[in-house]
Every structure is written in structure tokens, then in C-alpha cells.
């Protein structure tokens, strides 16, 4: 029988960042698809206003999050690894139904399983930057004419808008799956509780490995 020990996994800022980002992405998606004419709720002008405000909020948050990741060294959590990748996929596809143990042990210095590492890295270096950049271009895009207004000369909004829309669909799909995967922790609610309180019950033997230097996948045993 594996022993569990409470560990402080998610720091204060991390949780602040996570939940604010969740809220902002929800607001952005909700108002964004209203601007896209998928439905009417706030009204077009209000949707645009709220969308732009939330966008600035998210950008500020991201700036802080980047600073946090680099100053704390937490960025290393996202270094991709192929170790256990197959096992992790097999776990979600088969093992989980047999109540098999998680193939990757969660530790404070290695919170993410190899699949999470890949997906979150993709979000951080591809999908979120694409949304931020296309969003900023969308906001600061000016028709090719001067007037009294500062300009970025781009001939047409079409490409920017389509990239931004496609990115929104991808992010929303991620959120859907992400929401479901909350329930796949040690217990149904353990992941959620951890992200709210910061504390999570981790397997004891693994918690001891904290003293060793952080290498992705280091010290993790494959188990069936």
C-alpha cells in the first residue's frame, strides 16, 4: 500500500495566476464568440469592450507569470520528455479503467506528467503567444491610412481574424478536456482541491526524492 503525505504543490502566485487566467480565458472566449456573431448576450459594443479589457488583464498576468516562471525556475517543469510518454497515454486509454496507479509520480519539483508537459509547453510557447500576438494585431491593426492615429500597416484583417478564431477554438477544446482531466487525479477531487488550497497528498516515497536534483522523470518507477 502506498503511503501519502501532504505536500505544498501549488504556491500562492501560481494559484492566483491559474485561476485568474482561467477566469480571463472564460471571459475572452465568451465575449469573443459573441463578437464572432455566434450568439448575442452583452451586445456587440459591450462584448468588444469587455473582450479588450480582459485581453489587457491577461497580458499583464502573463507578463507576471513569465517573470515568476523564470525567477523561481518553475519553467523547468515544462521541459518535454519522452520518458513515460507512452505509459501515460496507455494509462489514460486503458489503465485508468482498471484503477491502475498513475505511471508518473507527481512531486513538487516535477508536477507534470509527460503528456501534461507537452500540452502545457505547447500552450505556453505556441497557442497563447499566437492568441496574444494575433489579438494585439487585431487591436492595433489600422487600415492603411494615417489620420491622427498611430498605425500598423497591414492590408487586411482577414488572416489575423481567422488565426485568432482558430486559436480560440483550440483553446476552448483544451479547456473542455482540461476540465474533465481534473477528475483523473488520485481521487475525483484531489486535483481541484490542490489547485485551490495548494496542498495535495503525494506518494510518500516520491516526496523523499525532493532532495535530489530535478531531472525530468528522475526517480520515477514504472508501475503496472
Amino acid at each position: 500500500m502506498t503511503k501519502y503525505k501532504k505536500a505544498y504543490v501549488y504556491k500562492g502566485f501560481e494559484r492566483f495566476w491559474h485561476w485568474n487566467q482561467a477566469l480571463l480565458i472564460f471571459i475572452l472566449a465568451f465575449t469573443g464568440f459573441e463578437i464572432h456573431s455566434s450568439y448575442t448576450f452583452l451586445g456587440f459594443a459591450n462584448a468588444v469592450k469587455v473582450h479588450n479589457l480582459a485581453a489587457w488583464g491577461l497580458i499583464i498576468l502573463i507578463v507576471f507569470a513569465i517573470f515568476w516562471h523564470f525567477t523561481t525556475g518553475e519553467w523547468k517543469q515544462y521541459i518535454p520528455t519522452t520518458k513515460n510518454l507512452k505509459a501515460q497515454a496507455e494509462f489514460y486509454l486503458f489503465g485508468i479503467f482498471r484503477n491502475a496507479p498513475h505511471p508518473t509520480k507527481k512531486t513538487v519539483i516535477s508536477k507534470l506528467n509527460p503528456l501534461q508537459r507537452l500540452v502545457y509547453l505547447g500552450l505556453k510557447i505556441l497557442f497563447i503567444p499566437v492568441m496574444v500576438v494575433s489579438g494585439l494585431l487585431y487591436m492595433f491593426y489600422r487600415y492603411p491610412q494615417g489620420n491622427n492615429i498611430e498605425i500598423i500597416n497591414i492590408g487586411n484583417l482577414e488572416v489575423i481574424a481567422i488565426v485568432h478564431t482558430a486559436g480560440a477554438f483550440i483553446l476552448l477544446s483544451f479547456v473542455l478536456v482540461h476540465l474533465y482531466l481534473i477528475t483523473t487525479g488520485h481521487t475525483l477531487t484531489s486535483n481541484l482541491k490542490a489547485m485551490i488550497t495548494g496542498w495535495e497528498e503525494l506518494e510518500e516515497e516520491v516526496a523523499e526524492e525532493e532532495k535530489k536534483p530535478a531531472f525530468p522523470g528522475k526517480g520515477e518507477k514504472e508501475q503496472g
Binding site: 463578437i35 456573431s37 487586411n156 477544446s173 473542455l176
Partner: peptide, 27 residues
Amino acid sequence: FYMPGRDRNRFVDIAGQLMLLLSFLGA
């Protein structure tokens, strides 16, 4: 020209909705 709220790329919209649906069904 492309106008937000009026124009959309049909392919992106259909593919996007399909992806959302599949994500939901998968979960």
C-alpha cells in the same frame, strides 16, 4: 474586406465546432 461579426472562415468554424464536439464527446 473582412468585417468582424459579419465574416468568418467557414472551414475554421466547422472544424472548430467539430473539434469542440469531439472533445466533449471524448471526455
